[in-house]
Design a protein around this nucleic acid. Structure first.
Length: 560
RNA sequence: GCGCCCAUAGCUCAGCUGGAUAGAGCAUCGGCCUUCUAAGCCGGCGGUCCGGGGUUCGAAUCCUCGUGGGCGCGCCA
């Protein structure tokens, strides 16, 4: 509808420009939905934006444009308002068409094919298997998974990926910690590894190992030899065991991955070494102090970075560059890396490394979505997370306490750029102040109405093409239709800007309008035409709520 | 010191990419359940949109300089 009005207005503008003998490239036509119904359904600022260049007062130009506007059945009338806005009042038929679209398209309403099946990868969580997932990982999981769902709804071919390191110093540290525990040591004892891990899970891990357990994770299977001297076996077992724990948490969170990618595979395949050679050949490196440096300052970094250490090992960012080259070579037109903001310095470095490869990778590639810290509140006080003591609130604890839906909603409903306070008491409260129940309740209410009507033998499955919507005329009904019409824009914009919180905010507004409508007007009235029309509207709201909640990975219950 | 993020009602946050009179919830005060789910609705109170400049017909929104808070500045990952 917006597009239709925009093109009509474009025609009118071209005509007026020609009539005035002017010749310039007009400012792009902007059409927006109005906030105030008194301003019509759609409004445009073209007259304000172009008045000066045409030498016309904005209101005069607006009048000329309205006169030059081609006739169209969808537009009932236009008005000129304020400093020169053109307000469009749409015909009731064209508003009802939106509802027909919802009913006809069902769970596909709001989806589009702007991604054209092109490949996009969303990498998120990517936690190294050295401990349980915590709340920060939860934020990454909620945001990343929603992004993947939103991109898929926009017609992209989405791959969700989890990258981790199953070798290296931290994993070795993990293995040594488990080994120490197998030998009955505790973190307080002298023989405990320096900077060893000390959570309760180390105890569980050691017990499972000594019991000779067989572990099956989504991407690994290992059987413990129960031999406390076999560090290699302990390492493999510990990684598989923790990966399995992560799998369980992610599954209960409704999050799944298409690919688990191992950092070690980049060494085994020679891709890391190839990247080093290529950077040297491109004269992007130099030797200093016995180390090999990359000139990242050539690409906006504030200092050059060591890529090969004095001891001959590589720093972490080299496999990162190799990993991203690998992504590029897999044909991902768009890559979104979702990470904690404490890793933000990696952004410049990885992009610099990719540019230095001279592999025709676009400068701003890949995209990053960095989420800020999460603090958890309970009983009005912050829940302190102490990694050193090994005591911290895990994602599993949170899901067990407040449930999957509330946890996901709260973690995805804020801009990732803002710090997030997760209030456990709020997430648990079953009331108005808890948006997730508020939205789900609106959905359940419609289901309840349909159930009741069905019990009375009234037909509740409506035909999108033939159902009569003429009886809809209450201001709240018109507002709800307009609200439904926004959903496709929201889905589209959420994908372009990589902001899943837009879906969450929209759903809250839609639910609020529906609750108000529900309290003011009854669906199950005797007048059949009115009842059917209101049922159709309610069903449309239910469908959009369900579609939106699905994009957030939150369930849409039929009863509460 | 340098870089990134944030700042809107007492509190938690929206504000649809620069539009018309800045909006919700909580808290507080007052109403609505013999009628489709009160996990709901209606109304009252509540604002220096952190501050100063600038761009613009128009700024909470863009630019700039500050202030305050968070995070990061390893040959750790």
């Amino acid at each position: 509808m917006k597009d239709t009005v925009a093109s009509l207005l474009g025609e009118a503008l071209a005509k007026v420009i020609a009539e005035n003998g002017a010749d310039f490239e007009p400012a792009p036509i902007q059409i927006e939905r109005t906030r105030d119904p008194a301003h019509g359904d759609l409004a445009s600022n073209v007259a304000l934006a172009n008045g000066k260049r045409l030498g016309m007062a904005p209101r005069a130009l607006a009048e000329a444009l309205c006169a030059a506007l081609p006739a169209n059945g969808a537009i009932a009338r236009t008005e000129i308002a304020g400093p020169g806005f053109i307000n469009f009042f749409l015909s009731s038929d064209s508003q009802g068409d939106v509802l027909r679209d919802v009913l006809r398209l069902g769970e596909r309403f709001g989806h589009n094919d702007s991604g054209k099946g092109h490949k996009v990868q969303v990498e998120f969580v990517s936690a190294n298997p050295t401990g349980p997932l915590h709340v920060g990982h939860g934020r990454g999981a909620a945001v990343g998974d929603s992004l993947a769902r939103i991109l898929a709804a926009n017609g992209w071919d989405v791959t969700s990926e989890f990258y981790y390191n199953d070798a290296g110093a931290q994993i070795n540290n993990l293995a040594l910690s488990v080994q120490a525990r197998c030998r009955k040591l505790t973190p307080e004892d002298d023989g405990w590894p320096e900077d060893g891990y000390r959570g309760d899970y180390i105890v569980e891990l050691a017990e499972a190992y000594l019991a000779g357990e067989a572990v099956q994770a989504s991407d690994k299977a290992v059987t413990a030899s129960a031999n406390a001297d076999d560090l290699d076996n302990i390492r493999d077992f510990a990684v598989a065991w923790l990966r399995r724990e992560q799998d369980l948490d992610l599954k209960s969170f409704g999050v799944s991955f298409d690919v688990f990618f191992l950092e070690s595979s980049l060494y085994e395949s020679g891709e890391v070494e190839a990247v080093v050679q290529r950077l040297i050949e491109n004269n992007a490196t130099y030797e200093k102090d016995g180390a090999l440096w990359l000139r990242t300052t050539d690409y906006g970094d504030d200092k050059d970075r060591v890529m090969r250490k004095q001891d001959g090992g590589y720093t972490y960012f080299l496999p990162d560059v190799a990993y991203h080259l690998n992504k590029w070579q897999r044909g991902f037109e768009r890559v979104i890396d979702e990470q904690g903001a404490d890793h933000h310095s990696t952004v410049t470095r990885v992009r610099a490394g990719l540019q230095a490869l001279k592999a025709d990778i676009p400068e701003g590639w890949p995209d990053y979505v960095l989420h800020q810290m999460v603090t958890v509140m309970r009983d009005g006080a912050e829940v302190k997370l102490s990694k050193r003591a090994g005591s911290y609130l895990t994602l599993r604890d949170l899901i067990n306490e407040v449930g999957r839906d509330a946890t996901r909603y709260f973690l995805v409903a804020r801009s990732p750029n803002s710090q997030l306070t997760f209030d456990i008491d709020l997430a648990l409260s079953q009331s108005n102040d808890n948006p997730v129940y508020y939205i789900q309740y609106a959905h359940a209410r419609v289901c309840s109405v349909k159930r009741r009507l069905g019990e009375q033998g009234i037909k509740v499955d409506l035909d999108a093409e033939t159902v009569s919507l003429d009886a809809l005329g209450e201001p709240q009904e018109v507002e709800l239709l307009k609200q439904l019409a926004r959903f496709p824009d929201i889905v589209s914009r959420a994908a372009v800007t990589a902001e899943p919180q837009q879906v969450a905010n929209y759903l809250r507004e839609l639910a609020a309008e529906f609750h108000a409508y529900y309290n003011a007007h009854k669906v199950a009235v005797d007048d059949e035409d009115l009842r059917t029309a209101r049922l159709a509207l309610s069903e449309g709201v239910r469908q959009v709520l369900a579609n939106g909640l699905d994009l957030l990975g939150v369930s849409a219950p039929e009863a509460m």
